[in-house]
Simulated scan of single mutants.
Amino acid sequence: MTWLAALPMYNVSPSLAADWRSLLRHVLRALGVDGTGIRITDPGDDLHAFWRRTDLLISQTCGYPLMHGLHEHVQLVATPHFEAPGCDGANYRGVLITGRHVSAQTLEACRGLRAACNQDDSNSGMNVLRHAAAPFARDGVFFGGVVRTGSHIESLRALAQGHAEVASIDCVTMAFVRDHLPDLAQSVREIGFTAASPGLPLIASRAAPKTLIEPIREALNDAIAADAPLAQRLRLKRFSTLSLADYARIEQLEDEARAAGYPRLG
């Protein structure tokens, strides 16, 4: 079998996508395969299908789909620790962002405004925003509408262009936007952070042999130790191993929003 590897979640720019592929090549060399038996690939547009492939050896997913069915198909490999505002160890936050045309200085002041949301199954774009807005909702409503954009980058563009007023953006994505898309970063404004939860995990198919998983974990940390410039560009500090019990924090945030009478972002 040829195993597949792809790290698609933070490809903010072509150069950043190339750096993620470089990290994978470091790992393959450490495993002693260097392209033989493992192939770095383009996952395509349907990430949910890609994450469920039985020949998946290394990829990265969002914690929300992980806890809503994906965990039945995959095993956790590692969770990155990023050097970015809003990150603390393996945890990350959503950055609350408005367009520069918006006067609101707090999320509470955004009542009735349009929210931009990348995906309904995004932890950083939907789940933590729902949790943050829940205390201010009335009869299950807080925003004046929700625009689904398809990605954090498109959510930022929606804010910049006035198609929406507020969004929650993965703080790691936001840090990469400042690095690689400074004009877009300067076209929006930060007003706060959401609650923290475990960051986007690296995963493998449940069919992947256990004898490869621990060497991959070691190779990831060895790679960023051996190539400091690459680690700096990727804002990587280290990788650690979390459990599904750690990721239950994501379900806790969802349950708290529902208990507050705000089950759906709106």
Rank of each mutant, 00 (worst) to 15 (best):
A109W: 07
H101E: 06
Q161W: 15
F176D: 04
A30D: 12
A49H: 05
S59Y: 06
Y10A: 04
N91M: 12
R52Q: 13
S103F: 10
A167Y: 03
F136V: 04
V128S: 15
V33M: 04
F82E: 07
R29D: 13
R52A: 14
C62M: 12
Q161T: 15
D222Q: 14
E251Y: 12
A104P: 02
L23P: 05
G69C: 06
P201K: 03
E254S: 12
L212P: 07
H73C: 15
T241D: 13
A195G: 09
G35R: 04
R100H: 04
L253Y: 05
Q186S: 14
A226S: 13
I203L: 13
T194I: 01
Q119W: 14
D227C: 00
A225C: 10
L242K: 01
A6H: 09
D170V: 01
A231M: 04
R93Q: 11
S240N: 14
D246T: 00
A175S: 11
F82R: 09
G140M: 10
F142K: 00
G140D: 05
V128K: 13
P209K: 03
D34R: 06
A134Q: 03
F142D: 03
L28M: 09
A204K: 10
R238A: 15
L113Q: 05
I213A: 09
S168R: 00
G144S: 00
A133F: 09
P65E: 04
W3R: 03
G32R: 09
G144A: 01
P43R: 05
H68L: 12
E254R: 14
Q232K: 15
Q60K: 08
D222W: 11
V128D: 12
L253W: 04
L234M: 10
N118D: 13
N11M: 12
L181P: 04
L184D: 01
A231V: 00
G261F: 06
R233G: 06
D46M: 11
F239N: 02
T41K: 01
R138T: 13
L76K: 01
A137D: 01
P229V: 02
R25H: 14
R39I: 10
L76C: 00
G69E: 02
